[in-house]
Design a protein around this nucleic acid. Sequence first.
DNA 1: AAGCTTACCGACAACTTGTCGGTAAGCTTA
DNA 2: TAAGCTTACCGACAAGTTGTCGGTAAGCTT
Lengths: 208, 208
Amino acid sequence: MRIVKTAEERKNEILDVAEQLFAEKGFDNASTNDIIKRIGIARGTLYHHFGSKEEILDALVERMTRDAIARSKAVVSDRSHPLLDRLTGAIIALDINDGAGPEVFEQIHKPQNALLHHKMQERLISGVVPLISELIREGNETGVFDSKYPDEAAEMILIYSNIAFDALAGLTEEELVHKGQAFICHVERILGAEEGSLAPAIMNILNR
Amino acid sequence: MRIVKTAEERKNEILDVAEQLFAEKGFDNASTNDIIKRIGIARGTLYHHFGSKEEILDALVERMTRDAIARSKAVVSDRSHPLLDRLTGAIIALDINDGAGPEVFEQIHKPQNALLHHKMQERLISGVVPLISELIREGNETGVFDSKYPDEAAEMILIYSNIAFDALAGLTEEELVHKGQAFICHVERILGAEEGSLAPAIMNILNR
DNA sequence: AAGCTTACCGACAACTTGTCGGTAAGCTTA
DNA sequence: TAAGCTTACCGACAAGTTGTCGGTAAGCTT
């Protein structure tokens, strides 16, 4: 007897397995055969739900980034916290590690997953830049920041944090702290914030 | 009669055609068959010179980045020019457009070439960061800059310029100028340079 | 001229992605 | 309850991909 599920159920099942396999072997090396074998469905079933392998990737990227962006948005919108906390919180919320796929994000940075990485980055950046730049504008008015180019400032901060914090493996604790401090210092300068004003905000978030 | 060439000659011939094809169709969509057909060699010949398709990509990345880095290095080393000119010149020298492959760099940013793009970026960054950070240290001593983290500052500047200046297609002249000015402003701030000190240096380079 | 190195050849195995006609489960509708 | 329609599911298949391997021939050295 053949097992029938709703389209949404099956789609998510496929995405779950795809997520595993892309993490294990990378997008290029994980074949659609691997996916259908692990689920136990036929070739036609997979292509009934997704038009191509790349469409699976896109859906996966969509699913992965949606949550991260939503979390970031929630932090930014919560005006009960000070502005600096909302800024740092919004950026930290993008570190999807604590979310759903832990082991995925270790493999994501391997060259084999360049496509996945690229698409996720593009989505994350375009989704979060407006949030951050709005926050910067708000900071300009209250006098916490002094930024002439809020959009580009947000873009620069996000792009760097996305790329530079990729290859953290193999760094000593010391180097890690150094890199973190450098990042904070540069963000302060880009935004025209007072020196040392950002560090406590980050501690507030991390200890929450 | 079979045409025989030296290994180096043939390898470069393969890389030339690979460069064309990757630009036309992207790395994923350009097959090794496309390459050998266009050159007029047999399958075994290609695999005699390169162990895999990815090895071709790596060699191509190597060949493309070598020149860019060398150019950058030459600019940095030339102490006959003022420091600021050397900094801006070194960054601009990385825009490989004017070099060998013009049409390649339009297609490089398409998702299909994510791997190529990623590998090039990694090589460019790791090759040029030391040059720029050394320049920043030099500027610290002469008082032109005031940077606490020269390495990370160089990294941030290079990563941003590499990513953000990817998707320039579709921007108006106005938006382009705005983005350029924002970049200059942020670099000045990151390096602790005087406001407006960088702009003339860029003009010096471009009008050279 | 013999022999060795190495560039070159093309058939072939193993695997990919995506297609398509057909099957069956679960709905409506009568 | 039976007929009919929608849609999830199946698996053989076409077309194409990468990488292998035994064999050929060009250009060396000796």
